[in-house]
Write a protein that binds this DNA or RNA. Structure first.
Lengths: 194, 194
DNA sequence: CTATATTTTCAGAAAATACTGAATTTTGAG
DNA sequence: CTCAAAATTCAGTATTTTCTGAAAATATAG
């Protein structure tokens, strides 16, 4: 690996993290190198920096392209293909989440839905279905939340996340303002669901 | 695998998903079996259901215990150890997120912090640091948000998530109510940061 | 304390995954 | 169209990870 120490440390750590998330180490290295690169790189640039085989880099780039995580940047007068990561890290994370959702969450929801449609033959299966239902509903809650806030432009999303649980205070205030004295509490949050 | 079809389908899918998330397939199977079981199971119950070796189950259970994902439930008059998953799936997911944060996010933040302290020797390293800073700040935003909403009790958290981006509407309303006419917009969200 | 049931450890086998170099295919300049 | 540069594929090899059975350790009933 022929990288300045600071870059190498980052690349190695990123590869390590990737491998804990079902992404192969080398693919993690490749993405890390592209992420910190000053300019678009071609496959051979990556071979040089990482010291892995050309074919390995080729497969890694393909994998990253399947994840929609790369931008191709043609350089005039050069036949080789050059790659960068998106400049905006928020865009990178959005893509990452979208792709994982598509590959892992959506199929899981489909399976759970199918299993919940079946008629349980035994009390054992009936109990299993109840558990699956809990899981289904939680995953749905989380993905619906994500689908919803994902539509926000990045600035607004950052604002919202910065607030954290303080949002709850604002909701309580709304409750206080709009709930008739003596009325049931939290009406704002309950109504807002529609 | 000696499980009713519905259970088997779930267990297999869960194992598959686990293996994409850096959790070994069998450990996923073990957790799935425990998750849908009607009563606490001992290691041999799992051996019987999954058809893997006793030692493999032993290692898998240990792994799951290291993740804090199991509850031990002694059965009077039986020397064997019996296990269940927590009843509340929200608790399970909280634990899962907490543990992953501890193992993956926190060390990453430490590494990034260290690398950002270094004095860059070259323009290349300087540019890398700028990228790392973007990444650091985004991860911090997300983990701070999580640390904050995690404190909410489950009911409140569900309310908040159900709202999704509608929260923004409430914030805008707050803005309208409390910002003096002619004042700059979004003051509510900006102030709430303190 | 002894005998036995239960769990854990671990070295080696088996399986899965990643990597390479050589061969093939694709691309585009001339 | 031709040719060489570039990219991709893939069969075989290397590495890593997972799994097993046998042995060791631990726990508890009597």
């Amino acid at each position: 690996m022929t990288l300045p120490p600071l870059c190498e440390a980052f690349v190695l750590h990123f590869g390590e993290m990737g491998s804990r998330w079902g992404i192969n180490r080398t693919v993690g290295h490749i993405y890390a190198v592209l992420f910190i690169a000053e300019k678009p790189l071609c496959a051979d640039d990556i071979v040089e920096r990482l010291g892995v085989s050309r074919s390995n880099v080729s497969m890694g780039l393909k994998e990253l392209q399947n994840w929609n995580l790369l931008r191709q940047r043609p350089i005039p007068g050069d036949r080789r293909e050059f790659f960068t990561t998106p400049d905006d890290i928020h865009a990178i994370v959005r893509t990452l989440v979208d792709e994982r959702k598509k590959r892992e969450i959506d199929p899981t929801l489909t399976v759970l839905r199918e299993l919940l449609m079946q008629t349980p033959g035994t009390p054992e299966e009936q109990h299993a279905q109840a558990r699956l239902k809990d899981m289904y509903e939680l995953i749905e809650l989380l993905t619906n939340w994500y689908a919803d806030v994902q539509k926000l432009e990045t600035e607004r999303l950052i604002q919202l996340l910065s607030l954290g649980s303080k949002v709850v205070k604002v909701l309580e205030m709304k409750d206080r303002l709009f709930t008739l004295p003596g009325g049931r509490g939290h009406s704002a949050t309950q109504n807002a669901k529609d």
